[in-house]
Design a protein around this nucleic acid. Structure first.
Lengths: 213, 213
DNA sequence: TAGATTGTTAATCGATTAACAATC
DNA sequence: TAGATTGTTAATCGATTAACAATC
């Protein structure tokens, strides 16, 4: 069942959430079974690729039938590591930090923001979506006393590396970085970057090169 | 100079903004020239890959010397299509829309948010970072009367497709989508997706599979 | 059983890396 | 000129697609 002997490429990992999203939609629509061909029509990956991807982790389908939607969804959740709650802290309680905070608050019970941190005295003590803003100076101390799984960086690029060091020293399991820098000293701690300005620049490229689509 | 006869792969396009970011840092640090080997140390791509990437667009370097930082930065800006101002509208004036708005406001003069849109009557008429929230019903009308280059979708997934249709009908040149759906009917209009929850799910995978790093 | 569709191997395609001649 | 480093071709590597035997 749980194969995954060899290293899974990042390309595959980045597709897993897309599968999960499609399966949630299918489940909500009351669909019980789906073939790789039908999934292909739905999300655009080839049927062959879908079968290859899934078979990295196990044989979840059945010949002549396809895949059971509910079962496959459960398997992918298990592969990703969902089904428990991940505690998060958000460092940087500006608009982006607040936006991520409310996004997480609305996002089922898989993730929970336990604290916001900021250096701005006017913001410390405020409560957003039920989460209190604490003094950024107390971050490392806080991490020692509370189990935190994920640290979110929504500070300026000048503050990001320092905040990152605190998160790593505090022992978070992963970092979600929105600052436009490449963090250092994160060996052993997975980092997921969301480089919004890089993203926007790519969009600008495609706008100016329509023939490339 | 301006080669680029053949199609450039998305892998290359996504690296261009990273080059630009590194070159800005180098310029700010007063560095005048840089070799592909030094750039490699800085941003992690191999020297070979850097030379390959740049040579898709032209020979910007000089044997025995390397690349002139300022010139290369200018070239990449030109390739991307920077150097003018892109007008944007943000559809969805919630926390995420506000966060993107303030992010853009702080982001030099390359991008300018000309209007926010929302369906919530309590929000319509408010002003965030100097930008007024308009009634989402007036979106298509607004687009007909004002030149807008980029539409940003920060609405719920239920509202995203409708809002997207208005943007496409209104003739925006590109869409920056933050809603967790795959937009339809966008043939001919480049779409850049920022699927935050997919991102977070990938991070969770890496947290649970440390041997994969 | 016959039909459908998976799991898996083989073939293809594309992207990355290595190598080196060209040249500043 | 000698040394350094590019531009570019060739080799390698990895990911995607095609094909089909296995099997439900």
């Amino acid at each position: 069942m749980n194969k995954q002997k060899d290293k899974i490429s990042t390309a595959v990992i980045r597709r897993l959430p897309r599968y999960l999203r499609a399966l949630e939609d299918l489940e909500n629509a009351g669909t019980e079974r789906i073939s790789s061909g039908e999934l292909s029509d739905l999300i655009g990956y080839t049927a062959s690729q879908i079968r290859q991807d899934l078979n990295h982790f196990g044989g979840f389908g059945q010949q002549g039938y396809g895949y059971n939607v509910g079962d496959l969804k459960t398997e992918i959740e298990r592969i990703l590591g969902m089904g428990r709650t991940y505690n998060m802290v958000i460092v940087g309680a500006g608009r982006l930090g607040q936006a991520i905070n409310s996004f997480i608050a609305s996002y089922k019970s898989d993730f929970k923001v336990v604290a916001l941190f900021d250096i701005n005295e006017n913001v410390i003590g405020k409560v957003y979506s039920g989460v209190t803003v604490l003094d950024a100076d107390s971050l490392e101390e806080y991490l020692k006393n509370n189990k935190v799984d994920i640290g979110v960086l929504t500070v300026t690029k000048e503050q990001a590396q320092t905040a990152c060091n605190h998160l790593v020293a505090g022992g978070v399991a992963g970092i979600w970085n929105f600052a436009p820098i490449d963090l250092e000293g994160t060996e052993g701690t997975p980092v997921e970057n969301v480089h919004l300005s890089d993203n926007l620049h790519s969009l600008v490229y495609y706008i100016n090169h329509p023939e490339q689509n």
